[in-house]
């Protein structure tokens, strides 16, 4: 193999890479906040909600969890316009990530809610709380605390999965890598560099989520 590695292009193209990192971080920030919010709502509906809502949420969760993210993205970006819903590529990417994380986090959070001891619900009821108040004030936070590590991993997985949004021309980190390789023909190096950046982002994101977890859950877990 007499291939000469060359990284000179970095000097010229680093603004593209920085911009790409920015978009990737923006996508995962919005995706994580709204996705987890959706997940909490769906988990409530599946574990404690009205009977008619349960199969609806279950269908949503199963549909999302058993189809590739790429196809969900294509369906939202290319398919929905024929129903009259026109979306920009970043909007479509955001919606796809929220919908995707919503389904996965629903299942994770539901496991947290269902591992709550019955006494907690009874204690809430004995204080004359409505079921929803009990959920909101007694059950939710300790449930989230128990499953926070699993939820964090899922957020990292969705961040890594977001690399496919470059396929609908959302200008994330992968898009930057594609752009650079098309200009410099240094495909291997461009993808090497962006892969390493993704690795760093994944490690950082895991740390950040652990810190956030420490803020939201200052006390030890109660079962």
């Amino acid at each position: 193999m007499n291939y000469q590695f060359e990284f000179n292009w970095l000097a010229q193209y680093y603004p593209e890479i920085v911009k790409g990192i920015g978009i990737t971080l923006q996508l995962i920030s919005i995706g994580a906040v709204l996705g987890i919010a959706l997940g909490i709502a769906c988990a409530w509906a599946r574990a404690l909600g009205p009977a008619w809502l349960k199969p609806v949420v279950a269908t949503y969760v199963e549909l999302i969890r058993n189809t590739p993210f790429l196809i969900q993205l294509f369906f939202i970006f290319f398919g929905l316009p024929s129903l009259g819903v026109q979306l920009g590529e970043l909007q479509a990417a955001n919606i796809a990530m929220v919908v995707n994380l919503g389904a996965y986090s629903c299942e994770i959070i539901r496991a947290g809610i269902q591992s709550t001891q019955k006494g907690q619900f009874e204690a809430g009821a004995s204080l004359a709380m409505t079921p929803f108040e009990t959920f909101r004030h007694v059950v939710l936070v300790p449930s989230l605390q128990r499953i926070w590590p699993a939820l964090s991993s899922q957020v990292v997985i969705v961040m890594l999965g977001s690399s496919v949004v470059s396929q609908i021309a959302a200008e994330d980190l992968t898009f930057a890598a594609n752009f650079i390789q098309s200009r410099t023909f240094r495909a291997f190096e461009a993808y090497m560099v962006s892969t390493l950046i993704y690795l760093v982002l994944a490690v950082l994101l895991r740390q950040i989520l652990a810190v956030i977890g420490g803020f939201i859950f200052p006390r030890r877990a109660v079962r």
């Binding site: 890594l160 690399s163 496919v164 992968t174 890598a177 495909a187 993808y191 090497m192 994944a202």
Partner: peptide, 10 residues
């Protein structure tokens, strides 16, 4: 810790 898509490209 890296996207599958990147692994495919590499």
């Amino acid at each position: 810790g890296t996207p599958l898509l990147m692994q495919l490209f590499i």
